[in-house]
């Protein structure tokens, strides 16, 4: 066997071994009565947009692609999903305090405006989540209008 063949074999073995490293993907929950989607704050086209662009990481309804179950990609998916939900989980929207809702919506506006979200690495695998400038504008306008509604509701 040549050196490069040994190298390939070595990589193959490492690949197989890391599959046994424990890795916990955040749980998927389908029924979320407290979700933003049922709150009356978002509907129609905007609901679809948010679900496609944000909900894999910022809700309990993550749609895990096949590579989510294969290390080392699975580690990154688990980390980003866990951190995304910690930052804001739209599945618990109605439980969130009014002031925190406003801070979240204000962040939605700036994160989308500055193209920090959706994460570039997420977009590299999810072209359907890519936002056109018009999409970004729509989300920003929605977030701003939603803030006024949240204040009035209180």
């Amino acid at each position: 066997m040549k050196v490069w063949q040994y190298g390939l074999l070595g990589l193959g073995i490492i690949f197989l071994v890391i599959q046994f490293v424990p890795n916990q993907l955040p749980e998927v929950i389908e029924n979320n009565p407290k979700d933003l989607m049922g709150s009356g704050l978002v509907e129609g086209e905007m609901a679809t947009l948010l679900k496609t662009a944000c909900y894999d990481c910022h809700s309990n309804e993550t749609k895990y692609p096949w590579y989510s179950f294969v290390a080392p990609a699975s580690w990154l998916v688990a980390k980003d999903t866990r951190e995304g939900r910690e930052e804001v989980n739209f599945s618990y929207w109605t439980d969130i305090d009014m002031m925190d809702k406003l801070a979240i919506l204000d962040d939605v506006y700036s994160e989308v405006e500055e193209k920090h979200m959706p994460l570039p690495i997420y977009l590299s695998m999810h072209s359907e989540a890519k936002l056109t400038p018009e999409d970004r504008q729509k989300i920003m306008e929605w977030a701003e209008a939603a803030m006024d509604i949240v204040v009035e509701e209180e």
Binding site: M99, D100, A103
Partner: peptide
């Protein structure tokens, strides 16, 4: 700023 923006800022200040 309008009220909603101010409250959002206050919330972030608090945090």
């Amino acid at each position: 700023e309008k009220k909603a923006k101010q409250l959002a800022a206050m919330s972030k200040i608090n945090e």
